[in-house]
Design a protein around this nucleic acid. Structure first.
Lengths: 185, 185
DNA sequence: AATGTCATGTAACTAGTTACATGATTTA
DNA sequence: TAAATCATGTAACTAGTTACATGACATT
């Protein structure tokens, strides 16, 4: 069972949408809302090489529109299987603590790859984990608020607010997957 | 001018609060709201070594409460200068795009290290950058909402909501630094 | 005697950073 | 001809991951 970095899964997920070159992928990271990923060639080309080495994607040379030849990558069956495996993994307490970015990326790909049924399940686990973690943070704040400098307390409150917001978001999002709504893309 | 990772600055900021051992720092990462950092010895001990090599902290052996000897680290003048340099750097568009974690850590240390006057300035820059980025994300959503799968759209909306929340938070936080309020710790 | 907690550290591996190199084609 | 855009790639460096090693003392 292979392991990949978040960047690797991001590339895999994007290549599942449609085949693309490394350059296309870089442009996605520079010009769309996926700007949290680095668009540097030193990150993307080696990552594509690794994915290809694992047999998860396959690149084919293509005579491009005039300029230099481009390598267009498409996801393989193995790649799709690995992407599904990643998407369907459990939502752990650790995932929540280490930051929600990974989980949000997983969710973003979910409808397309594993279908809306699974997305709703994911949201339920997501909400459950946050609902468990949030009171811990709140208890920590109350226990320490007196001894904390203002900016430290404000920063912590901001973090708590973020988790609270995501919980509310998840609960609203779940309703969009309810039967009766036409939820297919 | 030295460069350090986020972990390096986190350690520097914590050691500015008071001198501690590597083990104490690890415990902070496991037991407090700073859980986004790894508490693994393979991360922390080498990071402390690097900081000491740069002259930013200094460790002294200490006969501990019974068990094995511990090395207690304290920040040096150079370390404090470097921490201040990091805290007072500009708030860039890139800082906002790459994730708010780094900026929130900077802010958390700010009152103690550079004083409440600077914290308010920081919040104004922070709010300004978010206020500039947010409409870009919103335009992207509107331009793509039709072609996006439900889960992808929801994920993007969640991201937008987060930025909106942080903007509101920053504007509220600024008022807590206004003259007339007793804002010293 | 075995396990747990305090406490520090290293080694092998992985992946990301910045910066550079290359090269074709198009536009100013 | 200089610069911009398309397009791929490498090299040196940095830092983090997991896993292991060590060792003292305390508890069961």
């Amino acid at each position: 069972m292979e392991t990949n970095s978040l960047l690797g899964y991001a590339l895999l997920g994007l290549l599942h949408q449609h085949a693309m070159s490394g350059y296309d992928l870089r442009k996605i990271f520079t010009t769309t809302a996926m700007g949290s990923f680095s668009d540097s060639p030193g990150a993307i080309y080696p990552a594509l090489k690794r994915l290809e080495g694992q047999g998860l994607i396959r690149g084919t040379e293509e005579a491009s529109t005039g300029q230099r030849k481009r390598r267009v990558f498409k996801i393989t069956r193995e790649g799709l299987a690995e992407l599904k495996r990643w998407l369907t993994g459990p939502v752990t307490r650790n995932d929540i603590i280490r930051g929600l970015g990974t989980l949000m990326l997983r969710f973003a790909f979910m409808d397309q790859v594993t279908g809306p049924g699974h997305s709703a399940d994911f949201l339920r686990c997501f909400a459950e984990q946050i609902a468990a973690y949030l009171p811990e943070l709140e208890r920590f704040l109350e226990a320490n608020r007196a001894k904390m400098p203002l900016s430290a307390r404000l920063a912590l409150e901001s973090g708590i607010q973020e988790y609270a917001l995501r919980l509310k978001w998840a609960r609203t999002a779940i309703t969009q997957y309810e039967p009766g709504k036409r939820n297919r893309v």
